[in-house]
Amino acid sequence: MPDQQLAWPNFDEILLEERRSLRSRYETAQPFPYLVLDNLFPAASLKRVTADFDNAQPHHWREIQSGLQCRRVSAPDSPLPSAAQEYFNIVNSGPFARFLSAVTGIPDLIPDPALFGGGMHQVAGGGTFEVHIDFEQHPRTFLSNRLAVITYLNEDWTEEDGGELELWRLKPRERGAAISPVFGRTVIMGQSKIAAHGHLQPIREGRTRRSVTAYFYTNGLLSRMSSDLLPTVYVARKGQSLRQSTELMVRLVTPPLLLGGIKALTQRMHGLFERPH
């Protein structure tokens, strides 16, 4: 509806002085570049997005269950409920991409309307996501992954509810920052070989951690045929279970191309078993 469209801000109107201040915060953040912005998007618009999680149909979702992550995500290229799609239309727009370039210093950012790795994310009670480094390259466009933008949709969230986004240092291997996933909070997070992150504190039973995520890319930094490009890389740390350590070892010794093939085959077989007869 037209009045709903007007609820989203025009990011071209953010003043140059504010953009410079945000860029300074981004570039000096530790343990790697990131920004935390509250109320970047209007609460009323985000509440409509939150309602879409309850209204989404089963075919919108893909379950990911392993020792390293337990969550539900919207599948790439899948239709989204209307308010969620409206959010991504804004985030993938020219004004927002220009805003991101201004506050991060990364020129010519390219959105991904297919939302590979992004979309609607939901973690139920008991769920976690081990510390990891995101994929370096989009598997179809071969563009270089440079930024993740995450907006949280969790009203009345407390520390006891768990699910803090943890940003980790690799040397020494320790947590460098923790971000509570409260409603209306947006995290703009640089993507690189040192951008290790996850949420290790289990979600409290009866609560659900919800977010919407989009990735942004650039062209020309990585060779399409490079053999050392990596998918998502998990980080070994003290306190992991035997199952988690075993999964990490399998991922370590399996070539990325073969690992991707195994994942695709597993997902295809899972879909066959779920298909009604």
Rank of each mutant, 00 (worst) to 15 (best):
E86R: 06
E166P: 10
V235Y: 01
L229V: 10
Q65V: 13
N154G: 07
P231E: 12
E166Q: 15
R146Y: 08
L258Y: 02
D54I: 01
G271A: 13
V103D: 03
L265M: 12
T186A: 06
V91I: 11
V131I: 15
H60S: 12
L68I: 10
N89L: 09
F96W: 00
S93V: 08
L100I: 05
S66L: 07
T28Y: 00
L200Q: 12
Y217P: 00
T266F: 11
Q244Y: 08
S74T: 15
R209W: 15
Q267S: 13
I106R: 08
A56H: 08
G163F: 03
L143H: 07
Q30L: 13
G163Y: 03
G176L: 11
I150A: 05
L46Y: 02
I64P: 00
H199G: 05
F88T: 00
R71D: 05
Q240I: 15
T186E: 06
P79V: 09
V235L: 08
D52W: 04
A177V: 03
F135E: 05
P79Y: 10
S93W: 09
S21C: 08
A44C: 06
D52I: 06
R175H: 12
A236G: 09
G162V: 03
F88R: 01
F183Q: 03
V73T: 07
G127A: 14
L35H: 01
T208F: 00
Q57L: 14
G119D: 06
E160C: 03
R204S: 12
M225G: 00
N145L: 10
D112R: 10
G198H: 09
W157A: 02
R72E: 11
A196W: 12
S101P: 02
L80Y: 10
V123R: 01
F183W: 09
H121R: 02
A43C: 05
F32Y: 15
P276L: 10
L230N: 11
E13N: 04
P181W: 00
L40R: 08
C70N: 15
G117R: 11
F32W: 13
A102I: 04
G67Y: 09
A7Q: 14
N10Q: 14
I179W: 02
H277L: 11
Q30K: 13
Q122W: 02
S66T: 15
L248T: 04
A236E: 13
V36W: 00
K171Y: 05
A7V: 03
P256L: 06
K193I: 08
E18K: 07
V73Q: 04
R62Q: 14
E164P: 05
A102N: 10
F11N: 03
R169Q: 14
V36F: 03
R210Y: 01
